[in-house]
Design a protein around this nucleic acid. Structure first.
Lengths: 201, 201
DNA sequence: GAAACTACGGTACTTGCCGTACCTTAATTG
DNA sequence: CAATTAAGGTACGGCAAGTACCGTAGTTTC
């Protein structure tokens, strides 16, 4: 990649780091995490593996770093109606998991294989950020009287998202059909968070 | 492993197949799926990799086969009380996921990495079998008037299990504390499946 | 009961990629 | 301008998956 004798100056520090990261992003975009090899990233960045290993301890961490470059935050919707808001958040999430980016995320989750410390770095961006969306949406619904205050319990608030994620992580579906989202909302989520009637003993 | 000249007859077909599978089970029990190598299985079974590859196309399928040898079915409890039944099913599941066997299952899910066809073979034993437990337990509760008939919808019936599995698969927890199970039951599951009060428009 | 066939055993090999080691050379620092 | 730091180049060790071949032992067929 570097032309010898072309007057190129040897890159160092941040400049080189960005070049590597960009190469990693390109590779993971094209070939997924499975196709992300240290040699290819090095070649593409016009450097060698040494420079990579000086910055990231292993392939997985490089993959996570590349993913984080690509991931963007969600915007919680505000339609003024609980059901529409909820469906919209689910659809956003579904689009994300179904996208190439979602495929990469799944590969990474798989590769991390339950190493909680590493997973934390991904959760921060995917789950926790999304959890905030749910609380926002529910908070408005509670204010409107559409949802019961108990729904703000995090375990309750995120139920819909957990069910959706289950579709992807456990069943390996590439995308969840819209019916499924509607079903999750109407059969499970709304009955759960709406103001509850008197509970029979 | 085979003594030449010891009058050993060369194993074939089903006999050899069982020997390989037993070796694979032993290996995966001792070292997990990560430590399951084709060479070690072959050596342990007193044969060679050829014999394995003639039966299983790759390491993952051998691992799944070994897991299925180990997995056993759940027994749905019958305490006469919905909450106790539900908690017991959850605790069974928690014990399973927390056990060495559960660790293997998680490794396999991870290795399959969303290859739905393969996952199906594991789901059959873990999820679907468990789903039957839920329906049994709920069926009795409906008969008793403790749960509403809508709860028999599969998506609703399995919510508790999905939430628990989420603890393991997404957060890499080795075991879920009992508080979490109780919380899932009391905050989410029971409010959802119990006879519902009048729904406000 | 011999020939034909199938499948096991042994072994060696190719492939792929991670992670390391080591040395040379360019840039930076003081 | 020396000393230090970091990049480049290259080669290698390690490991395990999957393949190829061939001689040979059981099994089937006529």
């Amino acid at each position: 990649m570097r032309q010898p004798g072309a007057g190129q100056t040897r890159r160092r520090g941040a400049v080189l780091e960005e070049a590597i990261l960009r190469a990693a992003v390109d590779e993971i975009t094209e070939s997924g995490y499975a196709g992300l090899t240290m040699d290819k990233v090095a070649t593409r960045a016009g450097t060698n593996k040494n420079a990579i290993y000086r910055r990231w301890p292993n392939r997985l961490m490089l993959g996570i770093a590349a993913y984080r470059q690509l991931a963007t935050a969600f915007q919680p919707p505000d339609t003024g109606n609980l059901r529409d808001d909820v469906l919209e958040v689910l659809r956003q999430a579904n689009r994300h998991w179904s996208s190439p980016l979602g495929a990469i995320l799944r590969e990474l989750l798989s590769a991390a294989g339950g190493a909680s410390e590493l997973l934390a770095q991904l959760q921060e961006q995917s789950s926790d950020a999304a959890a905030a969306s749910w609380l926002t949406v529910l908070g408005r619904a509670v204010a409107r009287g559409e949802a019961s205050p108990e729904a703000l319990h995090p375990r309750v608030a995120t139920v819909a998202m957990v069910l959706l994620r289950n579709e992807f992580v456990v069943r390996g579906a590439p995308s969840a059909p819209d019916d499924v989202l509607v079903e999750i909302v109407d059969e499970v989520y709304l009955p759960l968070v709406r103001r509850r009637g008197p509970t029979p003993s």
